[in-house]
Amino acid sequence: MSAVTIGLLVAAGALAVGTLALRLVGVLLRARITPSDRVQELLDTGVAVLFCALIATATLVEAQEFVGWARPAGVAVGGLLAWRKAPFVVVVIAAAAVAAVLRLVGIP
């Protein structure tokens, strides 16, 4: 085995072990505690905040820079449709289609 192969294997293994550890710690902690209503409310708020921050950064930022208008426009249209209770598949396809069409006409 070449040194490059060993390096890649070790990197893949380290990311796998570290990622599983992160997942396990959260799940195991949850199994140990029986959260009170108040703590449960905090957990629910926390996960809502986490997801919304993820949506915001995944929509607007890539490699620490603004991604351009096509992606946020697509997500906005998808969000609007979801808010108006459109079927899930319509939301997803509309979001992708808006971004794709904007790029087709030259908006990045």
Binding site: A73, V75, G78, G79, A82, V91, A95, A96, A99, V101
Partner: peptide, 14 residues
Amino acid sequence: ALGLDAAFPAIILA
């Protein structure tokens, strides 16, 4: 070009 990068945030948002 397929706009799939907009699909992930839209999925989680919905």
